[in-house]
Write a protein that binds this DNA or RNA. Structure first.
Lengths: 177, 177
DNA sequence: GAAAGATTGTTGTTGACGACAACAATTGTT
DNA sequence: AACAATTGTTGTCGTCAACAACAATCTTTC
């Protein structure tokens, strides 16, 4: 407990979660943090969609990153390439708006993808401020592989929550896409 | 376009999204990025649960932060206080594990909450390494107000996706809580 | 057609966040 | 007593959302 200044000394002893879990008394090999999580009440949190969605989203991203780890593609990179592939010639602003990412952030994302030879910024024929985004030939080939791996990831999702639940979820959240 | 080095000059002209959207020709007051988003295809992205979940989660967090803006409480702070309130005496490790947050991060979260007089770190009676976390009297009062505001936020969620859909979603994702 | 305003890409900053690594103090195990 | 594991803490790194500022360019307005 290195360097913690104030440590109150009034320990109003009442039935605390630490004692309730009966850790110390019984010599079961459970450390303090090894209490079964379902022993710890979530209270109001269990009724909040945001909490469940956050946990789920973290799990999904971790699986996506792991499944596409061999090709070193993260969810946002995949989404950018997919939208450019389906809409060649889009400007950076249009892509950023469509995907709900900051245009400032897209700059760095495209720097990386361009450096890897997957995306190219052509100058727009009609607006010299903007870039017309395209996949390179290599980018199109790579995206096809990414898609196959992403489909594998999607199967992991279906395995986790159930095939019908996944489709129900897609339907419920269709308005946010 | 300040300071962009390479700008390829080979503009293989084919039906680009920029032209497809017919922006320039017609004098409609739409800027380049003001294309209706449903005109930009999402392609494979539409079938990915992760994309929808991410967009939804961003929306939820924004609404939560806005709705609880007056009391300056963010989702993670609310979750920490809720769990401590429901399980007084928990250690930091136990809280971190239960909520799926790094124990290193919880340190700073608790620093802030303790500084605001909402949470107190008492020394554990059984393990001098760990802290027994408790809400202060003021913390309990404050949490009751947070809960009311959080319930209002939850009504926004229900308004957005529908009451039944919200409950279906909670049910689908119950395993992740 | 010139002036004023808006848009686009870029750079930079701030803060929340997840993941890791290292460390001292303490506890558990052998 | 020696060694390993746990707990809280500090720090770093990379991702991400939210802003703000800027130059170049386009659009609108007079």
């Amino acid at each position: 407990m290195a360097g913690n200044s104030q440590m109150p000394r009034t320990a109003k002893s009442r039935a605390s979660a630490q004692l309730r879990s009966g850790r110390k008394q019984a010599g079961n090999g459970r450390s303090q943090s090894d209490v079964m999580d379902d022993e710890i009440a979530l209270d109001a949190l269990a009724g909040h969609a945001g909490y469940a969605v956050r946990r789920f989203q973290i799990w999904i991203f971790q699986d996506f990153i792991r499944t596409l780890g061999a090709v070193d593609i993260r969810p946002t990179q995949y989404s950018v390439m997919t939208v450019i592939g389906a809409n060649p010639g889009l400007s950076q602003m249009a892509v950023a708006k469509r995907l709900g990412i900051e245009r400032a952030r897209l700059v760095h994302l495209l720097d990386s993808l361009e450096q890897r030879g997957l995306v190219s910024r052509l100058r727009s024929a009609t607006d010299r401020r903007s870039h017309a985004l395209h996949l390179t030939a290599r980018g199109r080939t790579a995206l096809a592989q990414f898609r196959r791996l992403a489909a594998e990831h999607e199967r992991h999702v279906a395995d986790k929550i159930g095939k019908e639940n996944r489709e129900r979820l897609l339907q419920i959240l269709a308005a946010f896409t």
